[in-house]
Amino acid sequence: MRSRGLALPAASSQRLASVGWRRRLAIGALVWQGAAIVAAAIFLAPLIWLIVASLQPVGQPPLRMLNWFPNGIAWSNYVEVFRIAPLTTQLGNSLLVSAVGAGVTVVTASWAGFAMAQMPPVIRRWLVGLALLLMLVPSSAVWLPRYILFAAIGLLDTYVVLVAPALLGTKSLLVLMYYWTFRRISSEMFESAALDGASVGRSWWSIALPLAAPTTLAVAILAFSHYWSDFVDPLLLLKSAQRFTVAVGLRMLQQMDVTNWSLLMAAVVIMIAPVIALYLILQSSLRGGANLVQRIMRLDSKDDKITTEPASAFESES
C-alpha cells in the first residue's frame, strides 16, 4: 500500500492522459488518504485520550470500559489543578526561563554558525566535527560536575544555571542549522560588504541574520521548547519551590497526589499546550516542516545559493 503511494507521483505525464491510468490514480489517492488518516489517527489518539482523561470528574471510580464521559465532563478540573498546585507561578517561571534561553540561543547560535561559515574549509570541518561530537556527549556525564561547578560559584537555585547551555547555542544542532543556512549565502555578498567598510558584526546583523529569518524562527522555537521541556536540570539545580518550572511541578504533582489522574492529566495538557501552539505556528509559517529540513540540510541542488530576497529563496514550495 505504501509503495504504491510512493510510486504514483512518478507516473509520467503522457500516461496520465489515458483513462485507465486516471482511474488507477483515483483509487490510489483514495487508498493513500485512508492509510495516511490511519497513520495520523494513531499518533493523534494519545492526545485525544489525554484530554478525555483530564476531563473526568475527580473521585469517581476509574473507567473499566471504553466510554467517553460516563460521569459527565468536569471542566472544573482545569480550575482545580491551579488550586492544588502553584501552576501559575511555575508557568511564569518556565516562560521566563524559556524566553531568555531562546533569546540568548538565537544570538550565540547564529554567531557561532556565522563564524563557522566564514572559516576556511579545514577549520570548518573541524568545527562541524566538534559540534557533532558535542551532541554525542551524554547529558548525564555532565550532571554532577556541572552541579559542583555551579555550586562553587554560588549560582545554584538561580535561573542563570538553567539557561547556561544557551551560551553554546543550547544544542549543537541549532548552531549547525545556522551554519548550514549561512553557508548557502554567497560569500561575495560579505566580501562586497567588507569592501564598503562593514564590520563582521554589521555583516552578521544586517546581511546574514535577515536572510536567515526562517532559520531564526525555527531555532527560537526549538530552543524555547527545549527550556520549556527541560526536566533534569531544574530537578537538580533548583531548590526553592517558588522557582520550580512547570516540568518539575508536574513531577511534584505526580508524587504528591497519586489518586487524581484527571488533575494530573489536566496539568499535562496545560504544560504541552504552548509547545504545540508554537510548533503549529512554525509549521504554518514554513509551509510544512519538511521544507525547512530540506533547505537547511542542503539537500537541494548545490548551486542554489541565496543571493536575493530571503522570502523568495525560502518559501518557494518544491
Partner: peptide, 19 residues
C-alpha cells in the same frame, strides 16, 4: 498528517512519560 505525526515528537519528556 505530517504535523500530527510530528507533534508526538515535540511533547516535553515529562509530559510524554506521564501520558
Amino acid at each position: 498528517y505530517r504535523s500530527t505525526v510530528y507533534l508526538s515528537s515535540v511533547l516535553p519528556d515529562v509530559a510524554y512519560a506521564l501520558i
